[in-house]
């Protein structure tokens, strides 16, 4: 008897997304479910954890275990889940504001800790759910909304891939929602790769950043093989203009937790606290 296999649609729930028409997150949802199916995962062996924001609604739209957690803390929840249930495939997802501002510190230390999970950030360089404030990845001079300061924030945009490398992430890639098949392949590779895998997916917010429609023309496949050399990856990322898609770095660090997963029975742990 063959084992049951699941198609991408089996990983989608019956809850209908409330994203705007044309939002890139629809395609990211499709890429995630396609990657799950291509990897032969099962819904009950998979979990999607998120924070807060438009893209963080994604656990509701997937038919897996899920946790729509609190703002910026998705990685904390996801790491805890993976350490408690190493048998689960854990995918953490959210947006650039959730992940790099409110959750910026968790991001740094999740890279360092290198728990075996995949972190997807749907980056649209704006806080969409709260109507268009600049996020950490917003261009410093963007002021097309009254929600932005005149002349822009004047702050250098956060470079999540370079920071992930510096902090110790074990796999670094960039995808584009306009290339859902290519993005699905990247996500599948990220899940397969041991340790903390970080995938930034450029996902246009055509409501508050209408000019991002042009990303379809500006995004390009990275023209070189991924490197396992962090120094070489650093040089590449420091000259990266934010439009190169593909796997940029594959590290070989050992995942956190291989030797730290609790092996004691719950009754033994209880006994330690007996007065």
């Amino acid at each position: 008897m063959n084992a049951v296999t699941y198609a991408a649609k089996d990983f989608k729930s019956d809850v209908k997304p409330v994203w705007c028409p044309g939002c890139g997150d629809y395609a990211v949802l499709s890429s995630i479910t396609k990657a799950f199916a291509d990897l032969g995962l099962k819904p009950h062996e998979t979990s999607v954890v998120s924070g807060i924001g438009c893209s963080s609604r994604i656990p509701a739209y997937t038919n897996t275990y899920g946790f729509h957690s609190i703002h910026g803390r998705a990685l904390a929840v996801g790491q805890g889940l993976k350490l408690a249930r190493p048998d689960l495939t854990v995918l953490v997802a959210g947006g650039d504001g959730d992940g790099f501002s409110i959750g910026g510190n968790h991001f740094l230390h999740a890279c360092r800790r290198n728990v075996d999970l995949t972190y997807i950030v749907m980056d649209n360089r704006v806080y969409g759910m709260t109507k268009g404030q600049p996020s950490p990845t917003t261009e410093s001079d963007w002021d097309a909304s009254a929600m932005a300061p005149p002349g822009g924030t004047g702050m250098t945009p956060f470079h999540p891939l370079a920071i992930a490398l510096a902090a110790g992430a074990n796999f670094i890639a960039r995808g584009f929602s306009g290339d859902p098949n290519g993005t699905a392949e990247i996500i599948a590779e990220a899940i397969r790769h041991p340790g903390f895998s970080f995938v930034a997916i450029m996902s246009p917010c055509i409501t508050f950043r209408e000019e991002q429609r042009e990303w379809k023309e500006t995004m390009r496949k990275v023209g070189m093989e991924p490197t396992t050399d962090s120094a070489q990856a650093a040089r590449r990322l420091m000259t990266d203009d934010g439009y190169n898609c593909g796997v940029l770095y594959r590290g070989n660090r050992v995942s956190y937790g291989k030797d730290k997963i609790a092996s004691a029975a719950v009754s033994d742990l209880d006994a330690e606290f007996t007065l």
Binding site: C20, P21, G22, C23, G24, Y26, A27, G178, D179, N181, G182, P204, I206, T207, R213, K216
Partner: peptide, 19 residues
């Protein structure tokens, strides 16, 4: 099976819609 490359011509481009 992806003979058309990455962009499937039959599938509507979400970036082409307006609310």
């Amino acid at each position: 099976l992806k003979p058309w490359g990455e962009e499937d011509p039959e599938i509507a481009d979400p970036g082409a819609v307006h609310y």
